[in-house]
Design a protein around this nucleic acid. Sequence first.
DNA 1: ACGCCCGCCTGTAAGC
DNA 2: TGCTTACAGGCGGGCG
Length: 278
Amino acid sequence: MPELPEVETIRRELDREVVGKRIKSVEAIGERSLRRHRSPKEFIAKLEGAKISGVERRGLYLVFKLDTGDLLVCHLGMSGQLRRTQAKDPRADHTQVVLTFTQAGQLRFIDPRAFGEMFVTTPEELTEEVPELGELGFDPVETPISWTVFGEMLVKRSTKLKALLVDQRFMAGLGNIYSDEILFAAGLRYDRPANSLSTQEIRRLYRSVVETLHDAVKYRGSTLADQGYVDLFGKAGDYQEHHKVYARDGLACRRCRTPIQKARFANRTTFYCPQCQV
DNA sequence: ACGCCCGCCTGTAAGC
DNA sequence: TGCTTACAGGCGGGCG
């Protein structure tokens, strides 16, 4: 369940670990993860011999720049992991793609549920091939906006706050965990219509977005009980220790001691404090 | 056009 | 204990 803080943590590690490395060979094991390609051969051919010159994040997508001019794009979906390994390391179940570098070492893409994907494209074709990338909203960590502009975006919408926060076209990078944490930090209920917020509430919400995400990046993301997210080296994040509401239903609110509630909203689980969030 | 629901997929855990 | 069922949720697509 990687969201912005987890993907950004991985991006920073990739920056150190794979930039400057040349891809010697590629093993394409899971064809479902390469579904944008007609055949895995095409994917392999475009990668072998290429050197990685940089790694960027666009919302929840990781974009590897190659010295061939192509881009290697990766979305982790629900259960995807990227792992830095050595060739001799045993291969984990559901390993979908293995990149072996000319200098020692590998990068492996492991994805049990195969909701994630990898593909190679060009900068020109990127937004045609992946329209959702062209429609991505602003990135609250990379390109923050002013809270007044944020407010202008809110007043136009009658959508409930949580639905808006997780909409990648509105703002890029939020999923279920951080939208709940942000709404708690802002003292706002998930089902408040966006256009019902006062100026003070708008400011508080925007500040909560930025502060919560920065904090979560600082603690290297959230690793839940299922270990669905770990970093490039298999290490868990620490931000789950700081969660105020997510997966804390029945437990006392850290602020007011009222039991945290669990609700079903837009087909997802939502956690909130009925006392602190209005 | 927008809000909502489903399917995709596997691992885990609760329930009978 | 062992089988069945629900749930986890990012995202696109389809429906009302």
